[in-house]
């Protein structure tokens, strides 16, 4: 149990990542595939943030004069995740527009029934 207590953030992040990958591989509905992509992305963001965490750390903002630099968490993963969230939003909106096109063209969102999408 001690290992789980130490690595609880990693466990949660990879749990989300595995749920996302599994949803993307197994589900047939295109909307569910997009939901899986979104969950996967959340897991990756959580993992990146938890890599930069320091025990009992504070946010890297010098808002008060008394805040010391030695307790701050790593700012670089946070900046990367800020980028990743925006990119994820862009990918999500593009995927949803593809879903609209697919439904207008084939009349269904089931990937098994769309001949060009079968695997």
């Amino acid at each position: 149990m001690n290992i789980l207590y130490d690595y609880i953030y990693y466990a949660g992040a990879f749990g989300l990542i595995f749920i996302g990958i599994f949803t993307m591989m197994v589900k047939r509905n295109y909307i569910k595939v997009i939901i899986g992509l979104s969950i996967l992305e959340t897991g990756v963001n959580l993992f990146l943030i938890s890599v930069g965490y320091i025990s009992n750390g504070t946010a890297p903002i010098f808002s008060n004069p008394g805040i010391e630099a030695k307790n701050m968490v790593d700012p670089v993963p946070q900046a990367l995740v800020l980028t990743a969230i925006v990119i994820g939003l862009a990918v999500l909106s593009l995927a949803l527009s593809m879903a609209i096109r697919l439904y207008k063209h084939f009349g269904t969102l089931d990937l098994q029934q769309i001949k060009e999408q079968r695997w």
């Binding site: 130490d6 953030y9 938890s50 930069g52 965490y53 630099a69 701050m72 968490v73 790593d74 700012p75």
Partner: peptide, 21 residues
């Protein structure tokens, strides 16, 4: 992940950003 300790130290570049940023 077993070689990666959790919540112990920052990277070198992060130390530079926090101390001199």
């Amino acid at each position: 992940l077993q070689t990666m300790p959790f919540g112990v130290s920052r990277a070198k570049v992060a130390n530079h950003y926090i101390n001199n940023g």
